[in-house]
């Protein structure tokens, strides 16, 4: 009996290691395939180069790095205020039953596939921008709006949990001192929930920067650096997805190298989220 238990424990430990094994495989394979070209071109030349022209052997991904940043910041500008306000309403203001139903409904947003978001952006948002704001419609703005909507469920659900974790005594103390509900939320609840809220923003950022299919369909994907939000843009993820289908040789290596850059950005963001969220958990 004892032996069997030990055996079970060992088997479980080995199974449990599969997640870390997959992570290790991902890192090994992508770095092995992408790093030679970075070594050949030089890291600085690869990430600060402004020309992406695979047929001429020019691989600079600076426009894509900038594109990913612009689109992601735009998405945060749209998604964070709306998401936070929604979370505050659901956690602090709405009756529990309404709150539960609405929260489930918003979680359904998270289930809609990214291609569908992209498609709606393509048939509605892009023509709208083209007609009313000018430019080709395929733009930083279109991508930012689509991504802003896509990160809403993440922001709402994380902020909601964080707000709910603030001890009721904090609110009660404020209310007992004669504060209104909004004053209590603004002065006590939100500051107490700040680390968690910041963590939700970073998680949303990670989702936005990693999103591919929705962005491809609305961003226009030009490899130029956009100077206005109405101009087309290409992100790191789109760069990989657009050209992966036919790339060979050095070109393909450059796409994997793009993947490495993306991977590192995401890893940094996740580490940041973990650090920021930690004090709040204790």
């Amino acid at each position: 009996m004892r032996n069997k238990e030990t055996l079970v424990q060992w088997i479980l430990a080995i199974v449990a290691l599969s997640a870390i094994a997959v992570l290790a495989l991902i890192i090994i394979f992508i770095f092995k395939e992408g790093s030679p070209i970075i070594a050949r071109l030089g890291l600085t030349k690869f990430i600060t180069g402004t020309k992406w022209s695979p047929t001429k052997g020019m691989f600079g991904i600076f426009p894509m790095i900038l594109g990913s940043i612009q689109v992601t910041l735009g998405a945060l500008l749209i998604g964070v205020p709306i998401g936070l306000a929604t979370a505050i309403f659901l956690a602090e203001m709405a009756p529990p039953r309404t709150s539960r139903i609405l929260k489930s409904a918003i979680q359904l947003l998270a289930g809609i596939p990214s291609v569908v978001f992209g498609f709606i952006g393509l048939v509605i948002l892009v023509p709208f921008i083209r007609q009313w704001l000018g430019g080709p419609g395929f733009s930083v703005l279109a991508a930012a709006i689509v991504l802003g909507i896509m990160i809403l469920p993440t922001i709402v659900s994380v902020c909601y949990d964080v707000l709910k974790a603030v001890p009721p005594a904090y609110r009660e103390g404020m209310l007992a001192l004669g504060a209104t509900r909004w004053q209590a939320i603004k002065m006590v609840v939100l500051p107490a929930a700040r680390p968690g809220i910041i963590a939700s923003v970073i998680l949303g950022m990670g989702r936005a920067i990693g999103e591919t299919m929705a962005v491809i369909m609305v961003a226009g994907n030009a490899t130029k650096i956009p100077v206005s939000p109405l101009e087309p843009v290409r992100t790191l993820t789109s760069n990989v997805a657009l050209e992966m289908g036919y790339a060979i040789g050095e070109h393909r290596e450059a796409l994997f190298a793009t993947g490495i850059v993306l991977f590192i950005i995401i890893a940094l963001l996740n580490t940041l989220a973990r650090i920021v969220a930690r004090p709040e958990k204790v």
Partner: peptide, 25 residues
């Protein structure tokens, strides 16, 4: 701790990276 780090990191990886990895591996 290692296992948890692995699953959490895996959760944050964008699907396009999984696509690249799946293609290579």
């Amino acid at each position: 701790k290692v296992v948890r780090f692995g699953t959490e990191s895996l959760a944050g990886i964008p699907s396009i990276i999984f696509g690249l990895f799946g293609f290579l591996f």
